[in-house]
């Protein structure tokens, strides 16, 4: 039945619910169709990025005199750009650069934001008020604008880009972590724990953290996808990775003058960004489905 009737209160006690052990989170994500596709896409990109590290293919900076703007061939699988550089190698290196910025920025934002959120939610008082005010102010900026202003202030370079993106995302993690902490803090079992004299750190680690990890996990996937888009956008505008270093955003910007004739100069870097964003969003969807007990499979 699609409509759940209330349990038959006095009349009939239903049979005990199935108590099969809950499968682990990774397994539940993989069981979700979206999650599985997302993991496969991101896994493939990560492999390509790692391959670029050991120069399995071509040097992304080498300029081949033989052919500039040459189409895909046996020698250059994805063609070459206006300087005769191998697009495949540049895309792979670009993916590495994107993932590096995304991972570092989101790691920073998750750790700092998550910690601030948990602590301010758990401690309350002045700390909570100050953190709350700060996040309010940061939320007052449109995300892209804030990232841009920070990059303008910090200067170019991948780490500065990562820091700028991290600052933008930190208040989001503060909120995501703080909400469940407040709920958990007021819940029966934490109150009971306090009465029993458990230490604050024990309560924090045993009861509070497990409850905030689920919403944070979902947010991490979405933040990674936003970070990749932002990094590419900043590079596109000339404010991120600087030439001649390979970057997906810069490659797209450069391709403008050669498209649609040399379509490969645009298609492959664009495709890499799209695949990364789609993959991460699918993982986010999968996580949400896996973590939400209310989700009904249709």
């Amino acid at each position: 039945m699609t409509q759940e009737m209330p349990p038959a209160a006095a009349a009939v006690v239903p049979a005990a619910p199935r108590t099969a052990g809950q499968p682990s989170l990774p397994r539940r994500i993989l069981a979700d169709r979206n999650g599985l596709i997302g993991v496969v896409l991101i896994g493939a990109l990560a492999l390509i990025a790692l391959a670029s590290l050991v120069h399995l293919g071509q040097d992304p900076l080498a300029q081949h005199q033989s052919g500039q703007l040459a189409g895909p061939s046996g020698a250059h699988w994805l063609g070459t750009d206006q300087f005769g550089r191998d697009i495949a190698a540049r895309v792979a290196a670009g993916i590495f650069a994107s993932l590096r910025v995304a991972l570092v920025s989101v790691a920073l934002a998750t750790v700092i934001g998550g910690l601030l959120g948990v602590l301010s939610g758990f401690a309350g008082g002045i700390l909570d008020a100050v953190v709350g005010r700060l996040t309010d102010v940061l939320f007052a900026f449109p995300a892209t604008l804030l990232a841009l202003a920070l990059v303008a202030a910090l200067g170019h370079g991948w780490f500065n880009t990562a820091v700028a993106i991290a600052v933008v995302y930190t208040p989001i993690f503060v909120r995501v972590a703080r909400g469940p902490v407040l709920t958990v803090r007021e819940s029966e079992y934490v109150r009971a724990g306090r009465v029993l004299g458990f230490s604050r750190s024990r309560l924090l680690f045993r009861h509070v953290l497990p409850n905030v990890s689920a919403p944070i996990a979902v947010q991490v996937a979405l933040a990674l996808s936003w970070a990749i888009l932002t990094e590419a956008g900043l590079s596109f505008l000339g404010l991120g990775t600087q030439p001649p270093n390979p970057s997906l955003g810069l490659m797209v910007a450069d391709s403008r003058n050669f498209f649609p004739d040399a379509w490969w100069t645009l298609l492959f870097p664009a495709l890499a960004v799209v695949v990364a964003v789609v993959g991460l969003n699918l993982i986010g969807d999968g996580l949400r489905n896996a973590l939400d007990p209310r989700t009904v499979r249709r």
């Binding site: 956008g233 403008r256 649609p260 969003n281």
Partner: peptide, 22 residues
């Protein structure tokens, strides 16, 4: 819809301008 979200603005803008130009 997912594609619309994932297509970065700079890609759509670049393709549009290049297409309009040609």
């Amino acid at each position: 819809g997912l594609l619309g979200l994932a297509l970065p603005e700079f890609v759509v803008a670049t393709v549009t301008v290049a297409w309009l130009a040609s």
